[in-house]
Each structure stands twice: as C-alpha cells, then as structure tokens.
Design a protein around this nucleic acid. Structure first.
Lengths: 252, 252
DNA sequence: CGAACAGTTGATCAGGATCAACTCGAGTGG
DNA sequence: CCACTCGAGTTGATCCTGATCAACTGTTCG
C-alpha cells in the first residue's frame, strides 16, 4: 500500500521510526471510488482522514451556477482532507481516475499526536506546504498569462510526481481532461486547448490519454516561470536555527 | 495591546485561561514600521512570529519583473507569519499603514506548545483558516468577474474587521490604494477604479482615504456572491463528533 | 512651488471567453 | 455487427471583459 505521505513526514527530521510505525498501524483498509465519484463531499465534517492509496483526485469548489474552481490535484500517497481534522470541508474531493482510498480516524490520529508530538508538527507542516501551493496558484491565476499558467501547473505536477527529479523524456500519469485543466487555471476549455497545442507544437511536452511526456524540461520551466521553492521539498531547516531576528529583537 | 489572535484562539473550545496567559507572557515589546516597509522579507527564515498590534499589512509575492500578487490582508491582532514556524517565508509581509508589530520567539512558542498541546492545535487551526481564505481568493480570481471579486474582497474585510457582525452604515478602516486592490484581485488599476465607481454609484459602498463605508450590506454580499462560511467564524465543532464516516468505514 | 502619488478619464487594444459545429474514439445496446 | 450515444478534443468566427497607454486632476508634503 503506497503511503507516500509517510515519506513526506519523514522529511521532517525529528520524526523517527516509532512515529511512522504508529501512523502506519492506524491506516484502515481501503475503499474504491470510480472516476468522477466524490470522495469527500463539500460541507461535511468527516470523522477520518482520507489517504489516496492509488489513483488521482482533485479538490474543488463548485459555485451554485456550475462554475467550478479546482483547488489542487492529489497524487497517489497524498492525504487529501487533512483540514477536516479541525475544520469542516469547505470544498469537495473528487476522483479523477478510479481510486483506492484508505482511512485514518481522527480520534486515532489525535491519540497518536498526543503520544508523539513530532507527528502533529509534521502534519501541520504538511498543511503549510499545501497552503504554499494555494498561494502559488493564486499568483498564477492572478498575474500569469494562460500560457505560463498551464506550463507552471504541468511543472508542479511533474515535480510532485517525480519527487523533485524531473528530466527530459519523463513520462507521467496525469489523467486530467482539458476541462479539468481549465477549471484549475481559470480558463475556458477552448483556450486551454489552444495553449496546449502551442506547447506541443513547440516540442515542450506531449499529452495524450492522461499521460504527460516531458520533452523539454528546461523549456517547460521557462514557459511557466517555474521555481520549485514553494513546494518546500528541500531538506528541512532545523527549527529556530539560522533565524533572522529583527534588529531590535534580541536586546529585550 | 490588542492581541486579537488570542480571541481567535479562544474560539477553539479546549483552550483555557492558562494557555492564553502563557502565550500573552511570551509577547515581546513592539517595533514600529512605516507604511510601505517590509515587516517580513520574502525568502527569510524568521526566528520569531510577528503579531500585528496596530495598523494594517499585506502579504505578497512579487515576481522578478515587478508583477505583484497580494495574498492576504492582515488586520490588527493578526499573526502574520505563523507559517515561518515550520517553513521559510515564500512571500513577504509589508506594512500598509504605520504598524506596531510585537514578536513571539519560535523557541518560546514551541515550548509553550509542548506544555499546552491545545495551543498547538489552536494555532494549527488558525493556519487552516488562512488556507481556506487562500482557496476562496483562488475561486474569486479564477472564476468570478472583476465586479464580484471586488465586492467579495470588501465583504471579507468587513466581516473580519467587524468579527462577523456587519450592518449598513458601518465604517471601517481599510487603508489600501486602488493599486493594492488590483494586485490582490489580479486586475489592472484602471479597471479597479471603474468597478469601484460602479459600486459607489450604485450606493453599495463609499470609500475614501482608507475608510470603507458599508451602505448596503445585503447588496454588497449579493454583488460579491459572498458567503462567510469559509472564514470558519462560527462556534467550533467539537473534534470527532457528528462526523461522517464512509459507509464501509465502521465495519472494520 | 514643485514633486510625487492617488485617483480619474478617454481611447484603443488584446487575451481569452463564448458560440457553434465537427471529428474521433470507446462503449453500449439492439 | 452496426447504429447510437457520449465524452473529449479540435476548429473557426465573433464578442467582450478587462488590459494598456496616455493624459490630466487633486492632494499632500517637503
């Protein structure tokens, strides 16, 4: 059972084998969802967290008149409703492809966090990275051209699926339709289609049947003004060290 | 010293007087910033959290060529760089008006969280609400018209400044220029100006010299398709109760 | 008094939306 | 086995929201 989020947690230095074991034991067997099924309904307050074991999903908010904004894409191994631990779900989670989803009950998770404080910090940090991604999307939709936005999204997906190590020729599973891309990027389907064609005819990517081929990684990054820093993949900085204090701070 | 974030924390049920006292004691005396000064620089890793005691600020990301996206507005009492506790700052915080900013060192805060686990949960929840706001902005910039976006932002600011209770005739301090609004909403200054004029001529709001007057609250909400749910102001749901479990969940 | 900035206005332009039609599989059911 | 449907992708034509450019006003402030 792919539990990639455990490896994310591992990136949080202080988290040791014990914690990981403890979390792994909490995971309950998976349930299957068909493509297009809602894994988590908007508005509900779940009693458990959902781990995407296999398949892809997306988080979305749909307005009364049908306009939809996709908020993020979840890849296998992602914890896709961690916010439900403390807040009701202000958006839904929907399966992009057939999915296998495992659960961890909130009660169990809280108990584990009590036993292992470092676990809570690690999950918190996960939420912070999630928020960083929202911010980056906001920058894109607010201030980048359609062309850069699409390229940027593809960069992000590639980096997340390959855990930072992308290179020319990489082929990735990303089962979205152009309509999904449009709703993620605030564009119309028609325009998304045309920009995608441009990207293909420039030999930067190829995309067919839910597979993304990176033909020119450097070119794609340039097109998307992409800098992976916001994904905070790098080695974790130790808390409190090398901090910057305000000039007047250390004197009191 | 206005510490409104303490009242936010209070909304988290389990947090008692002890915790609040403990946090209050950690707050170090304030430093002043002029309007336009960077309170937190993009890229740095602070050794402390900043509490906006008085004045207004905004969080922003500025692209190499000068395009800027404002990510949120901070009102007096806000903790404006809580993410710095676990992540480096991928965006800056800038003073909108002259500000007074107090600090809490990360080390002190971590120690307090160790002593009072509920404190950590409360701050985590604060971050989650922050993320909910980012999502809502994303929906706006991606899927709402300029008119709705502007109205929506004004609604949000009003609700946050009045802590949920807004009514016709309310006058609020919101010292932004039209350029700030533009950069928050992904619009040009000229267009922002025109939409603002529309909103004024329709008798919905008045805005002058950093003061916002709500003339028709219902009208403003309608114009902005505003629903305050995403701000999660309501009474906190108790964790784990009234949860929704997947059909197959409780059987294992 | 002049600079600098915020706001405003008008004219023009363009990125991307919208509308509509058509192609091309992949099912699906008779 | 074929007709049918349905979803996804594609194309062309046209429209419109909002961008851009440029000038001008008013106010504050040194």
């Amino acid at each position: 059972m792919a539990m990639q989020f455990l490896t994310y947690l591992e990136a949080y230095g202080p988290l040791l084998g014990d914690e990981l074991q403890a979390v792994a034991k909490l995971v309950r067997a998976a349930r299957r969802f068909a493509a297009g099924a809602e894994i988590v309904e908007e508005g509900q307050r779940p009693s458990h967290c959902s781990v995407l074991v296999s398949g892809h999903a997306f988080r979305h908010r749909t307005l009364p008149d049908g306009r939809r904004q996709i908020l993020s894409f979840s890849v296998p191994g992602d914890l896709c409703d961690l916010q439900g631990l403390f807040l009701s779900m202000d958006h839904g989670v929907c399966a992009l492809s057939p999915c296998e989803v495992a659960f961890i009950s909130h009660a169990d998770l809280e108990a584990a966090m009590d036993a292992y404080p470092a676990l809570g910090r690690a999950l918190w940090r996960l939420n912070l990275i999630e928020a960083a991604v929202f911010r980056e999307w906001l920058v894109g939709v607010g201030r980048r051209s359609a062309y850069a936005r699409i390229a940027h999204l593809l960069c992000e997906v590639a980096v997340r699926l390959k855990d930072g190590a992308v290179s020319d020729g990489d082929r990735l599973r990303f089962p979205v339709t152009q309509a999904h891309l449009s709703d993620a990027l605030g564009l119309s389907v028609v325009h998304t289609n045309r920009v995608l064609q441009a990207l293909r005819s420039e030999g930067v990517i190829a995309m067919r049947g839910g597979d993304l081929l990176i033909k020119d990684w450097a070119g794609l990054q340039a097109a998307g003004e992409f800098d992976a820093a916001y994904l905070h993949l790098g080695p974790l900085m130790s808390p409190g060290r090398e901090g910057v204090a305000p000039a007047s701070f250390n004197q009191w």
